[in-house]
Design a binder for these strands. Structure first.
Lengths: 340, 340
DNA sequence: GGGGTGTCTGCATACCTATGCAACTGCTCG
DNA sequence: CGAGCAGTTGCATAGGTATGCAGACACCCC
């Protein structure tokens, strides 16, 4: 019923040449005559032959597989990025092998083992914070790692993020220009450098304007936690008149709480600024002012860095920060002079 | 700097046993004495040995890799499903290798070739309609295929969907019970069986109530197309008073158009019913009445079917339909006697 | 004590391809 | 005309593991 697997040897026999010849025809940069090329390809076509990527990987030591380690996909920023990343890698003949960790990275250990078992050429992580243990293991195996949308300062690992410090600053300047007096922040997860940087840039800008951070809470990159944080903040004696939320995913939850739980108006009662510019931020139901993370450029940088490290494993890993604009919409009071 | 790769032979030498012994220790179901097991594992631990999945796959013919073919991830139903699918497969020692096709499946051919090159054990497709060509190639290679959230009748391929006919019917009955007189539908993509079934169940139910479909448009599973379709419908002399939209992703776009473009109220002016019950459907800004697709159960069924086909490739593929409830929220007029 | 049974182990080989090396061809150039 | 060279090709081997086969061993029971 189902045909036997067809190998390069089968093709060689049919074409009356050696197995090496077949291999060379399908190997880029090998020396093959036009005649040979024609005969082998004809035979291959007829038999339906395609080189076995595994056997190839076994011998070349390069599998053209990139491991993608990801904790969750409910923040729409990630599916979008992953789709683009997969496309970009596919262009270059690479593919993504997915490894999901628990939301709190419990089983990271096992995931890493699996990862190494598959002899992946490189690793991209997203929506996850890895332990030093992992770092060490991958370095030891000589596998390049690129952190996407996260960074671990001092780890020596390559990382691609937006310019989170600048982004936080832009949010602060915008809210200050809007004349807000009680400006709060709901952070992502205080173990994540990305979140810390956004906070740091935000706070610094507030302080240099002579204003302090009015309130601070941890939303743990989770809708429910962010919603609760917002409720708590608004429940205080002097609630904030503006909240910068560390990503859009949480910001939308905060807007829902303000409007539907507390009956407040955005931006009249409270201004909201998010981070990411996910597609939903542009939807009229939210119309969220937010700092854009240039997904495309971040993905391109990730791919470029990865390819570079594949070529030269010993080159120092780079930490790349890509600047993104503040996208002004309707969820925060618009100061004089700002274009929407 | 970076250590050499450590192989089973290295472990064997250190433990003073044969390479086969090492292999057996790491092979489930092989016969090994307790003493041997201990010695080998100790040596393996010390050297940091892990079996090479590629070499293993090459010889066993099973890679424990499942190819996932996906066209787009912007409909949040898919990221959610993929995350669950990845988890479930990981439990069983399998992993997903991603292949993205263009939104309109242009480069399906190349994708299939790549897929086969990697010797995947099985294939899952999502958000995509495959050509018969693909079907044929995979069958020929003896690789089981499971279509997720799509089905191709008569193809003989395994498929897991919700009960789309019943779902369409439920939507119709709900809208009929709500007393709507001009009931329209915005379909997904008329090449997709899933969409056709939803329409068919919907239309049949309307007709058996003596009512016809008031209007019909194709939203191509795309936000923009769906929005335009809604505008066109509402622009007619006798606009609908209810619209059943073939998935939530489009339904949310339709609600945005109605409210923000046309200044209409939902559900007072127009009732909206969606399909999927994506997380956002429950958000208060939309509060969308929708037919739930039980993602967890669909994923479980997909994994089960896949595992079964891996064991017995010749067993007939099954088409599995999983029933999901209508989740009543606030986007459609609620008839007497319905619980919210 | 011998034959049967069951458990472990090692040897040798197979899986499929890429590649170093040597041999061969046809050619140019001195 | 011979040396040298570039371009092709085949041979043989490597890459890391799983597994059939046969041998070794222990054990039991008659």
């Amino acid at each position: 019923m189902t045909r036997k697997k067809v190998t390069s040897l089968d093709v060689a026999r049919m074409a009356g040449v050696s197995q090496s010849a077949v291999s060379r025809v399908f190997t880029e940069g090998a020396s093959v005559s036009g005649e040979m090329d024609r005969r082998v390809r004809a035979a291959a076509e007829e038999l339906g032959y395609r080189p076995n990527a595994l056997a190839r990987g076994l011998i070349t030591g390069r599998t053209r597989i990139i491991g993608l380690v990801v904790a969750y996909l409910d923040n729409p920023f990630y599916p979008d990025a992953i789709e683009k990343l997969s496309h970009a890698l596919q262009e270059k003949g690479y593919h993504l092998l997915i490894f999901t960790t628990g939301k709190h990275g419990i089983d990271t250990e096992r995931v890493i083992s699996d990862l190494l078992d598959y002899q992946v050429d490189g690793i991209v992580t997203a929506s996850i914070d890895l332990s030093n243990e992992l770092t060490r293991q991958c370095a030891r195996a000589g596998i390049p790692v690129v952190l996407f949308n996260r960074g671990i300062p001092g780890s020596g690992l390559a990382a691609v993020t937006s310019d989170n410090l600048a982004g936080g600053r832009k949010a602060a300047e915008f809210l200050l220009a809007g004349g807000h007096a009680r400006i709060a922040h709901i952070a992502g997860f205080d173990g994540a450098q990305t979140s810390r940087d956004r906070l740091s840039g935000f706070r610094t800008a507030l302080e240099s304007a002579g204003q302090g951070l009015h309130a601070l809470a941890d939303g743990r990159y989770d809708r429910e936690a962010a919603a609760q944080a917002a409720r708590d903040m608004m429940d205080r004696a002097d609630p904030p008149d503006a909240i910068f939320v560390s990503n859009d995913h949480m910001a939308l939850a905060v807007m829902d709480v303000l409007r539907f739980d507390l009956g407040l108006c955005v931006p009249e009662d409270v201004s909201i600024v998010g981070y990411d510019d996910v597609p939903m931020a542009a939807w009229p139901a939210y119309d969220l002012t937010t700092v854009r993370q240039p997904t495309r450029r971040m993905v391109d940088a990730t791919v470029t860095e990865l390819m570079t490290l594949l070529d030269r494993p010993n080159r120092a890993a780079r930490v790349i920060q890509i600047d993104g604009p503040l996208v002004v919409r309707g969820s925060a009071r618009i100061p004089e002079g700002y274009e929407t």
